[in-house]
C-alpha cells in the first residue's frame, strides 16, 4: 500500500491505495465522490471524466498514484459553494441535455474543459470535442445545444 495526497475540489486529501488503484476508484470509493461514473471502464465512454490540473482526464485510465501532488476537480466541484449550478449545468437542465443522466457528469466535465479552452466553439467543434463521450439516450443534439447555449451563443428555445 502507498499513500496518495492530492487536492480534490479545493480540499487537501490523502488516501491509502494500491499501485493498481485507479483515480476513479479512490474518488468514488475512498472519498465518496460518486458523481464521477464508471461506464465502460475501458476508457472509451467518458462518463468518468474529471479535470486534473484543469485538463480533462478519463479517471478510469489514470492511476491514483499518478495524481500525487496534483489538483483534481470532479463534477461535485463544478457548482458554486451555495449550490448554484454552473452555466454549463444550468444549460443542460434548460435544454434537456440529458435523459438517463449516466453520461452527464462526463459530458459536463468535457464541456467545462472545452469552454475554458475555446469560449465560443462552433457546433462542429463541440461535436468533435465530445468524440470521447458516449451517450446512448439523447442522440447528442440537446447536449450540443446546451453547450452552445452555455457559451452565450443563440440557440433555438427548448421544446
Amino acid at each position: 500500500m502507498a499513500v496518495v495526497s492530492m487536492i480534490v475540489n479545493g480540499r487537501e486529501v490523502s488516501a491509502e491505495v494500491e499501485g493498481r488503484t485507479l483515480l476513479v476508484e479512490v474518488l468514488r470509493e475512498g472519498l465518496g465522490l460518486t458523481g464521477t461514473h464508471v461506464g465502460c471502464d475501458t476508457s472509451q465512454c467518458g462518463a468518468c471524466i474529471v479535470h486534473v490540473d484543469g485538463a480533462p482526464v478519463k479517471a478510469c485510465a489514470m492511476f491514483a498514484l499518478e495524481a500525487e501532488g496534483h489538483t483534481v476537480t470532479t463534477i461535485e466541484g463544478i457548482a458554486g459553494a451555495d449550490g448554484a449550478l454552473s452555466p454549463v449545468q444550468a444549460a443542460f437542465k434548460e435544454h434537456h441535455g440529458l435523459q438517463c443522466g449516466f453520461c452527464t457528469p462526463g459530458m459536463v466535465m468535457a464541456a467545462e474543459a472545452l469552454l475554458k479552452e475555446n469560449p465560443k466553439p462552433t457546433e462542429h467543434e463541440v461535436r468533435e470535442y465530445l468524440e470521447g463521450n458516449i451517450c446512448r439516450c439523447t442522440g447528442y443534439h440537446n447536449i450540443v445545444k446546451a453547450i452552445l447555449a452555455a457559451s452565450g451563443q443563440a440557440v433555438s428555445a427548448p421544446v
Binding site: S43, G46, V52, P56, K58, A61, L114, Y129, E131, N133
Partner: peptide, 9 residues
C-alpha cells in the same frame, strides 16, 4: 489522436 481526455495523458 483519440479524444481530448486521451490527449491530456
Amino acid at each position: 489522436i483519440g479524444d481530448p481526455a486521451v490527449r491530456t495523458r
